[in-house]
Simulated scan of single mutants.
Amino acid sequence: MTNTKQTIYDIAKKAGVSASTVGSALNGTWKSRRISETTVDRIRAIADELNYSVNLQARALRSAKSGLVGMILPQHDNRFFSSIGQCFSNETRAREALPVIVSAKRERDQEIEAVRGLINSSVDALMLVGISEPDLLSEMCQKAKVPHVFVDQPCSQAPSVVSENKGGAQRLLEVLLNDSNAKDLSDVVFLGGDANLPATEQRVRGFKQALKKRGHRTSKSQVLACGYQRAAARDALEKLYHKRKSLPSVLLINSIGCFEGALEFLVQLPTEEVDDCAIGSFDYDPFGRLLHHPVPMMRQRAEEMVKRAYLHLDQDDTDPQITHIEPELILPNR
């Protein structure tokens, strides 16, 4: 007995609908045709029963689109980047396309390999998040005529969507200064991040601006841009503590990874010592609100950033421009 490959006409006959209705149910365009969800569910169930699979390659040739949208981000195990990835996935699927997400660890060679691979897979567009070589990757996309937009990292050759990092850091430090008993502003410290990357560079600017408004000029020793790794932040804070024999009166921690690293050291100290230090985080972790010690946090608005990035793609924007998204200040429960 030979198995005959099923077609949409077989599904249509069994479902009691037209072949075009089956096509719309299976390719995701059923909403625009006002086909009921009940009918779509019935058609898809029959398609599964008949082991029917959509020929995506043939569809791509007919539509001149693959239905794939790519995203490259530094890592998955970071709350902000995982939020960006989830929002991207939700928004892409809502547009009846398939999200493809690749982690490149902010390493140049991996970023190039990822962009090349996604271009070869005929993605319809690319979102590039926290990239180390934005101009180079933009040139690759332009050469391949792939629409693209940058998120969390400005690019001089394409549209970019970033958090308002300078203003956010300034607001956060002002809250910490108002909540602290700091009399000596040289006892205020910025911890974490890479000073060579725009996000950290702008947050350091905001940190300095808040101190400048109070008549203080920030010294180099007040900015510990030790990178984004937990261990690096933990070690930098421990070294500072042993050098000073105490914590600073105010500590602004840059990124959740660094915040977690700082906590690894802080839990070793007496509670009263930690309570004497006003601590804030530029990045948000909901579990931070459960800490005994109150920690104001800046939450980057991942969903809004992805929507704005998609707006650039929808409008076929190619000119370099930066859209700033104001982060949300989350104050602890008192």
Rank of each mutant, 00 (worst) to 15 (best):
M298N: 00
A169R: 02
L197Q: 14
K145A: 15
K13P: 01
P294R: 04
A58F: 06
E326Q: 14
L197P: 02
L269D: 02
I35L: 15
L263M: 13
V54C: 05
L136Y: 10
A58T: 05
Q170F: 00
E139F: 01
M305V: 02
L251Q: 12
A225Q: 00
G215A: 06
I322W: 01
A233T: 09
P154N: 09
S83V: 06
E326W: 00
Y52D: 02
N178Q: 15
S122Y: 07
S63R: 15
E272W: 10
H324E: 01
G23F: 05
C155W: 02
N178M: 04
T7V: 10
A302I: 08
L98P: 01
S221M: 05
R203H: 03
F287V: 09
A58I: 08
P99C: 12
V267G: 01
A25G: 06
I325K: 02
F150T: 02
E304T: 14
G206Q: 00
S249Y: 00
T7K: 15
A182Q: 05
K166Y: 02
N254C: 11
G167H: 03
V102Y: 13
Q229I: 12
D184M: 04
A302Y: 01
G227E: 04
P74T: 07
L173W: 00
N90M: 14
L211S: 10
L50S: 09
L313Q: 07
Q157F: 08
A15P: 03
Q315M: 11
V69M: 15
P134L: 04
V40T: 09
V306T: 12
K105R: 14
E273N: 08
R289P: 00
E96Y: 08
I112E: 11
P332S: 08
K143W: 08
S121C: 10
R217N: 13
E328Y: 05
M297K: 07
L191Y: 07
L311Q: 15
R234P: 10
L251C: 13
F259I: 03
N333I: 14
F81K: 10
S89K: 12
N333Y: 11
Q209V: 00
R95G: 11
A225S: 15
G117D: 11
P159S: 11
S160D: 06
A47N: 07
L224V: 14
D48A: 14
C277A: 10
D187T: 09
D41I: 08
H292R: 12
L126F: 11
L247Q: 05
G28Y: 13
Y284A: 02
Q321Y: 08
A199C: 07
A45G: 04
D194H: 12
N120G: 10
A169W: 04
L50R: 06
A158N: 07
H292S: 14
Y310L: 15
F282A: 00
G28S: 12
G257T: 09
V17H: 09
K143S: 15
A97D: 06
L247E: 03
T318N: 10
F88W: 06
C277L: 07
L137A: 05
T39E: 01
N27E: 07
L50P: 13
V22Y: 11
V274L: 12
E174P: 03
R217S: 14
D314Q: 15
A199T: 13
G85Y: 07
G257M: 13
L251A: 10
T39I: 10
K212T: 01
Q57K: 10
R79Y: 08
E113M: 13
E111S: 09
R42V: 02
H148E: 06
E133P: 02
D283V: 05
R33G: 02
S160A: 04
S255F: 08
Q75R: 15
A210R: 00
L68N: 14
